[in-house]
Each structure stands twice: as structure tokens, then as C-alpha cells.
Design a protein around this nucleic acid. Structure first.
Length: 488
RNA sequence: GGGUCAGUAGCUUAGUUGGUAGAGCGGUGGACUCUUAAUCCACAGGUCGCGGGUUCGAAUCCCGCCUGACCCA
């Protein structure tokens, strides 16, 4: 900001205070909004003036056009912008006061009535106004707005009041979350909250954030997933539970990764992953309909429209990988064959065949799955909390949903055999890397399973990614109000 | 972690053989009573991301760093 503009605005504030009109001590109760007024007076003809109403509207001044004897200005509130008009004919004093003290960016309360201009715009005829907050900084350009991506994220509040389409993104994100809540409550799900501070991180493979509790003199971890706690609730008798909350993963940032992100996790007893696939399809279809008005989403890379019509395609991860490597599906279990086929393309250290198959899938196949696709049949070693397939115990009943090449959901029939679960935990703890990251596992979860968990299916859906995909945006930062950035 | 690109006034930006940094919006002062990115006149506003180097001279060339975007791992 130029020094001149700053001092000019600060001077105005100082003079207001001297006149006993300190904006920070003014109060004003609006009785209307920009969109209300436009709706209510939509039938006015150009030139018509309704003076029998007492409109009170408050918001930010976003544009001023000064004609000397009259001034047009625009006020923006939560519902949009509306034009206001003040003229000398009404009061020489008021128009002078406006000219002397009002800048774009100020928060104003206006009182008056309504007319439609000769050119046809519904306008508030301002009879009085009060300054409710002074804007001491100069605003971005009125035409181009705030475009600089970094500035938009760092000064999100400016981004929000300058860019309507950004406000819309967050309105839609809120609608998406509300719809999910509705959708699940109607099905009898109970919304719950489980610990974010956990003794041991669990429920996913990810590096955790570690913190410390002073009184208890112990380390705690910010959760990487709520999974085990939610399943303990199923043991407790809540047959359908879900949680929408923040997870924290201490890993790299990318267009699809923010260190903290919002996750929906749901668990449904007496169900399996097939049931969840059907439920997920329906939910996705409804959400696209809700935010886009049609069962389509837009691919931000190609601008192509992509249908979310039911049913979604299903592919088997092992069949896809076997096809890619030109081997028989059974050969995938032979790490020597994998090594021969993949020579050099993948680092095999510390990996079993399952981990390799998963990596091949993620590296070479996943990004090509643009239309909604359920990927099924994960190797058991990659899914330590999932139930084995009865037809082939080397695989589990699990799916991931890919849309636009991005993983949106991950679900499985939950492993409820405490003995198998214990073995898989022990297997994990044998891996040095796992011990280093997780330190231990939640053995109480085994105890819970020993009390008996009904057959249950569970799913996690990344709400930020989901929003990004539904709205055709190319970065998760666009759907997180304050994305993680390094300080300037 | 590696690579590519970007950072110039409050904002949006121009700036190539290296030669005093230019505009629009916004601001200040003035004119103007129906504008729609209002218009017209005048003026002010710059550590060219930061730090080094090369050079008579650097926004521009070189090195390092910071921040961001994209790609790769």
C-alpha cells in the first residue's frame, strides 16, 4: 500500500473519532439483505420509487462512482451486491460527509428506500448512513480482483470479499457436508466424536504429528485416522456411526495433500464392502446433482464433462496390474516374477508382493481412472484392518473409489477376528519402519474385538478431495479456507 | 528430495543485443446530479522477492537463499 493512501484513510478515521463518530463504537441492525431487496422489488419499472419502506442494509462498500451532485456506490453483504444512491438534493451535508470520509472497503450501514434507475438497476435511495468499520488498507483492483494465488491463500479474507466464486466454493462445500449428514442420519447413523489426541497413531499408514501433555508427562499423537475408536463404538453397540473431522498427516504437501484435512468415516454393522459401494455410488450421484445441478463433474485438466451415473465401473487391482505386467494373476504373488517384470522401475526393499502390486497400481494405473471407478481386491498385506476374501485369503474385501485419477474413498469389510487382527498387528510391528513411525499399536483394540464386533463395513471419504472433484477444481488448497503454507 | 517456471507501485501488469523503471485500476487535488470497469484534467506513489558477484553501468547476466505454482521421486 502506498504511504499516502494509508495515511489518508487513517486521517479520516482520526477525524471521525474527533467528531465523536468512532466507527468502532457504532451499532446498526440491518433488516434486509442485498438479494432480499432485489427479489422484493423486482417488479419495479425504471424510474419507479417506493418511498414507503424503511430499508436498513449493512455491508462493505466495494465501488464508488462520484458525480459531484450525486454518488452511486455498491454495498456487498453476504448475499451479494446492491447499488446505492445518495444525492445533494436530499442533503448537502450528507453527501459532503460521504465524500470526505467513505472509502472503498469501509463497512457501512445504510438506511433508505428503494427505486429502479432509468437504466433499470434496483437501487437503495440512501437517506442516512453510518460508518461501522473503517477499512485502513487499499483494496485490490476492482476489475481483476485478487489473482495472485499465494496472496489469495495467505490473505484469504481478502480473497473472500473480492472473489465471489471463491465464496461460492465454500458455500458448496458446506452444502456437501450438510447433505452427507442428512444422508447418513436418514439411514439411522449416529454422529460421534472420537479422540484427536491419541496414545498411538492408528488406522492408516502415515507419519503422525507428535505432541506432549505436560500434566500427564506423556507424548500424544494427533490422529491420522479415527478408525479404531469408531470400531470400538460398534463393539459398544452403536451399529451405524460416523464422524466428520480433521485428520493430521505429517507428510508432503501437494495439489491433493494438506497436512490437516477433513475426513468422513462411517461404520455400519451387519454389512460388507459391497453394501458400501452401493451406498457410495448413490451419495456421489446425489452430491453431483446437488452442487452441479446434473449428474456430471468437470475434469479440470480437459474441461471434459464426466458422468457419475450409477453403477460405477469396478476393476480389480490385481487384474489390472497383471494385465499391465502381462502375467497371470496368480503370478503376482511371486515376488521374483515381479522383480523380473519390473526390473529397476520400483524399489523392492522391505516390500512384499502386495506392497509392490499396490505401488504399481498407484504409479501406473490410478491416474488414468477418470470416471468414477471402484478398485477392488487389495492384497492382504496392504490392508491390516480389512477382512480376507473367503475365496482367496491373500486378498481382502476392500475398495477404493477413484475419480479423476484421485483416491476419494477407501472402504472395507472390517476384520473382526481378534486372533487374525493380533497377528497382523504383530506383523506390522516386526517392520522396523513401522515401529519407528508408530512406536506401538493400540492393543486395546484387540481387547475390543475379543468382546465381539459384529460383521461390519467401514469407509473413509476425504471431504476436501471430494469437494475439489465435485467442483472441478485442480487443487485441494482451493477448498480449504486456510491451507497450510510456510510463513512469509 | 530433484527439475521447470514465476516474484516489478496497494492490486493487475509492460519492460531483450545490460544504458535514468512504464501503464491501468486504486489514492490525492479539481470538474461533473442516472452511473454500470463512469468520464475529463493535474499530481503523488518503486529496496524491480532477499543476499552476493560480473560490469563504467544490472529488473535484465552469474551464484546462493526465500516464497509460490507445476512436473517428477
Amino acid at each position: 500500500m502506498s504511504y499516502d493512501e494509508e495515511t489518508s484513510r487513517v486521517q479520516k478515521l482520526k477525524r471521525l473519532k474527533e467528531m465523536n463518530l468512532d466507527p468502532y463504537f457504532q451499532f446498526f441492525k440491518p433488516n434486509s439483505s442485498a438479494s432480499d431487496i432485489k427479489d422484493r422489488f423486482s417488479t419495479l419499472s425504471p424510474g419507479d420509487h417506493i418511498s414507503s419502506v424503511d430499508i436498513r442494509l449493512a455491508g462493505r462498500v466495494v465501488l464508488i462512482r462520484d458525480f459531484g451532485g450525486s454518488i452511486f456506490f455498491h454495498i456487498q453483504d453476504q448475499t451479494g451486491k446492491i447499488q446505492c444512491f445518495i444525492e445533494r438534493k436530499l442533503s448537502e451535508e450528507k453527501i459532503k460527509f460521504f465524500r470526505d470520509f467513505i472509502d472503498t472497503g469501509d463497512i457501512l450501514g445504510v438506511r433508505g428506500d428503494v427505486f429502479r434507475t432509468k437504466k433499470g438497476e434496483i437501487t437503495i435511495y440512501v437517506r442516512d448512513f453510518v460508518i461501522l468499520s473503517k477499512c485502513l488498507r487499499s483494496l485490490p483492483e476492482k476489475w481483476h480482483g485478487l489473482k495472485d494465488v499465494e496472496l489469495r491463500y495467505r490473505k484469504r479474507y481478502v480473497d473472500l470479499f473480492m472473489n465471489q466464486e471463491v465464496r461460492e466454493i465454500f458455500h458448496k462445500k458446506s452444502k456437501i457436508i450438510s447433505h452427507i449428514r442428512d444422508f447418513l442420519s436418514k439411514k439411522g447413523f449416529l454422529e460421534v466424536e472420537t479422540p484427536i489426541l491419541q496414545y498411538v497413531p492408528s488406522g492408516a499408514f502415515a507419519r503422525p504429528f507428535k505432541t506432549y501433555h505436560n500434566e500427564l508427562e506423556m507424548s500424544l499423537f494427533l490422529r491420522i485416522a479415527p478408525e479404531l475408536y469408531l470400531k470400538k463404538l460398534v463393539v459398544g453397540g452403536f451399529e451405524k456411526v460416523f464422524e466428520i473431522g480433521r485428520n493430521f498427516r505429517n507428510e508432503g504437501l501437494s495439489a491433493y495433500h494438506n497436512p490437516e484435512f477433513t475426513m468422513l468415516e462411517l461404520y455400519q454393522a451387519y454389512s460388507n464392502y459391497e453394501d458400501l459401494m452401493m451406498m457410495t455410488e448413490t451419495l456421489m450421484y446425489e452430491l453431483a446433482q446437488l452442487v452441479n445441478g446434473e449428474p456430471y463433474i468437470k475434469d479440470p485438466e480437459t474441461q471434459e464433462k464426466i458422468s457419475v451415473d450409477i453403477p460405477f465401473r469396478r476393476v480389480s487391482i490385481c487384474e489390472e496390474v497383471a494385465k499391465l505386467l502381462e502375467v497371470d494373476k496368480e503370478d503376482l504373488k511371486d515376488i521374483e516374477i515381479l522383480k523380473r517384470k519390473l526390473g529397476g522401475k520400483i524399489d523392492f526393499t522391505g516390500k512384499d508382493w502386495g506392497a509392490v502390486v499396490l505401488e504399481v497400481f498407484e504409479k501406473y494405473i490410478a491416474s488414468g481412472l477418470r470416471s468414477p471407478t471402484f478398485v477392488v481386491d487389495f492384497p492382504v498385506s496392504t490392508s491390516p484392518l480389512a477382512k480376507r476374501k473367503s475365496s482367496d485369503p491373500d486378498y481382502v474385501e476392500r475398495f477404493e473409489l477413484y475419480i479423476l485419477g484421485i483416491e476419494v474413498a477407501n472402504a472395507f469389510s472390517e476384520l473382526n477376528d481378534p486372533e487374525d487382527q493380533r497377528k497382523r498387528f504383530e506383523e506390522l510391528m516386526r517392520k522396523r519402519e513401522m515401529r519407528e513411525i508408530f512406536e506401538d499399536v493400540d492393543w486395546d483394540f484387540i481387547a475390543a474385538l475379543e468382546y465381539g464386533m459384529p460383521p461390519t463395513a467401514g469407509e473413509g471419504i476425504g471431504i476436501d478431495r471430494l469437494t475439489m472433484i465435485l467442483l472441478g477444481l485442480n487443487s485441494i488448497k482451493e477448498v480449504i479456507l486456510f491451507p497450510t503454507l510456510k510463513p512469509e
